[in-house]
Design a protein around this nucleic acid. Structure first.
Lengths: 349, 349
DNA sequence: CCCCGCTGCTAATTCGTATTAGTGGCGGGA
DNA sequence: TCCCGCCACTAATACGAATTAGCAGCGGGG
């Protein structure tokens, strides 16, 4: 048992010590010196002395109650923020978020208390704690539309990381420009002479998946063939069969893990990459995948997304945001070694 | 420009809607039903309806002002929490912290706003925000003693991760029992026949370093030789020279990276590990080190330390702590492949 | 001498919620 | 009829800081 905590020092205590009123202490503290507020230097000194003597610090909670601002940025992750599994997924975002938060002097509040319902965390629940923060950053592959809608209705400042479809109004976000990145890779492939492309998707209906498909569909129009396959990557061999049957020369793979599995299957079968089949990845690995070769594809600017999310959020919070901020950051193309020219023999057949 | 934020819904609004007083709303909300507080079921229903209609949620800040509790756990890291460099250092702690915080329904507040002075973050500074949280977990290899002292004086609930020396009183902590772990490894080495041991330290004066040395000193007493070397690992060759000159058969290495460097230097010189020299590490890698062999040593129970830190903190916060909680968790020994028997020829010389 | 205006401060109020003391109304027992 | 006691609330206050209106005191101009 600890002794009943000694009541913490308040402005009243300081006031008593310095022989002034609580209001004066507050004025000195915020060192106000407007036209209509003047404090004699001597008085100011007495107050400051009392403050340093007692080591007084203003209670941020009480302060917030008045000022409506906390300098706290909420971070809501739809999966645990520090999981072993998707660890590499959130980490770069958090890195950028932390960096920028430090720059603007904000603390980060991780809403770990949000209860899990139906396998997902929920922003809105009984004892909603969102308001502890001035605004909130939403992280997650998929974000529930109804929750976004609710945020919009409440007018609570927030920013999603990753592009989001409208939800009862436009959603502020900082995303990655997947469509363009995928488009560029398709153009590369076409320029190399590829005419039979395949797009391997996981079958998620997250915006990030849609955007990639859009990029593929938009730029692959001139190809002789541009099929799409849905796969989990479990049966890479079957997948490979399908691709071969289709005389595909380059596969654009949504998920990095599947690309690795595909390459492995090809090698097992005596095929070479990119000799017999080119493989292009459309996103960096979210879990460490042991692979000795560098895949052609792109990197998602996760860290920068985190940084800019904080930046955007601050503008939304202080009301200086221009309309609803929506940013798409360019992905970084990776040359890699898995995109080659198609086999001429096959190509002519 | 956003429209001037629509003032958020308060209990007064609910009260007006339901035709009751604000106090009644509060009573319904906390669904108090003590002997001296009774609300007619009909009234209760009216209030609840108004609440669900407006989507009202209590302002956690105002609530805190009254109750003194926030269900917020502060996390203070002396280096950035999500750095690229020491990433693997904090991550496991945070993982455990998050897990347990979720379990007890607390949010995590990362004090990213703490300014960096002299290359380190400081807990105490001008605009101290510690009080936003109910208590605080301190993470860092080295923690400033004066700050601990200050925390003790202020009576602010906190727990350090890692054992700490007294600072104006005992420091509550959850640490790893390095002394015992190192001791066990020394005993293993002795049991294998080693008589000439060397302890390679980095020269930090953190408690974690001291504890390891204590373990070494305590258990290596019966050895023929038990020297200590200070090294940064830069000149692994010189280090190796010294060890050879000293006829050392087993080196206990504080830092994992140095162990790797040493093994590399040995191999370059045509020596085998553990044939010619046994190497034991005294802590797991904080940065990913490419190495194909498993070092004999121990693992620090970082995740569990994080979990228990939260657990202990909650007891400190609610005053149910038994005295000053100090826990040392056992490390997990790793058999590994780098501890062998000493070369008999050398041994007899 | 009166009043204005300036200086330097304080009293009072506000933020939103929790808690406690108290109050009006009503039924029942004496 | 009077009073007690219970029920179902409400009024008032506290939490700690920020802010605003306003009040003494004093000097100077008319």
């Amino acid at each position: 048992m600890t002794p009943p905590a000694p009541r913490r020092v308040t402005q009243r205590d300081i006031a008593r010590l310095a022989g002034v009123s609580q209001a004066t202490v507050s004025l000195v503290l915020n060192n106000r010196s407007d036209a209509d507020v003047r404090i004699a230097p001597e008085t100011r000194r007495r107050v400051l002395r009392a403050i340093t003597e007692t080591g007084y610090v203003a209670d941020p909670v009480a302060r917030r109650l008045v000022s409506r601002f906390n300098r706290i940025i909420g971070v809501f992750t739809y999966e645990p923020a520090f999981p072993s599994g998707s660890r590499d997924f959130f980490h770069p975002f958090l890195l950028g978020i932390e960096e920028y938060a430090e720059r603007v002097g904000c603390d980060l509040l991780l809403f770990t208390s949000a209860p899990v319902v139906d396998g997902r965390r929920r922003v809105f629940h009984q004892d909603n704690r969102l308001r502890l923060a001035d605004g909130c950053i939403l992280l997650g592959r998929e974000i529930d539309g109804t929750e976004l809608r609710r945020l919009n209705e409440d007018g609570f400042p927030y920013v999603a990381v990753g592009r989001r479809d409208d939800a009862g109004g436009p959603v502020p976000y900082v995303g990655a420009d997947y469509a363009t990145a995928v488009g560029q890779l398709v153009e590369f492939a076409l320029a190399r002479g590829h005419r039979r492309l395949a797009y391997l998707r996981m079958g998620l209906d997250a915006e990030s998946a849609t955007d990639r498909q859009v990029g593929f569909a938009r730029y692959a129009g001139t190809a002789e063939s541009a099929r799409q396959f849905t796969t989990t990557g479990q049966d890479a061999d079957l997948l490979l069969d399908n691709l071969r049957a289709d005389r595909t020369t380059v596969a654009l793979v949504e998920d990095f893990g599947i690309a690795v599995a595909l390459e492995l299957a090809a090698r097992r079968r005596g095929l070479t990459v990119p000799g017999d089949l080119s493989i292009v990845t459309l996103g960096d690995p979210t879990v460490p995948v042991p692979s000795d070769l560098t895949f052609t594809g792109f990197l998602i600017p996760r860290e920068e997304m985190g940084r800019q999310a904080v930046e955007v959020l601050t503008t939304v919070v202080d009301g200086s945001a221009d309309d609803v901020p929506q940013r798409l950051l360019p992905c970084v193309l990776v040359e890699g070694e898995t995109l080659g020219a198609p086999d001429p023999a096959v190509d002519r057949s």
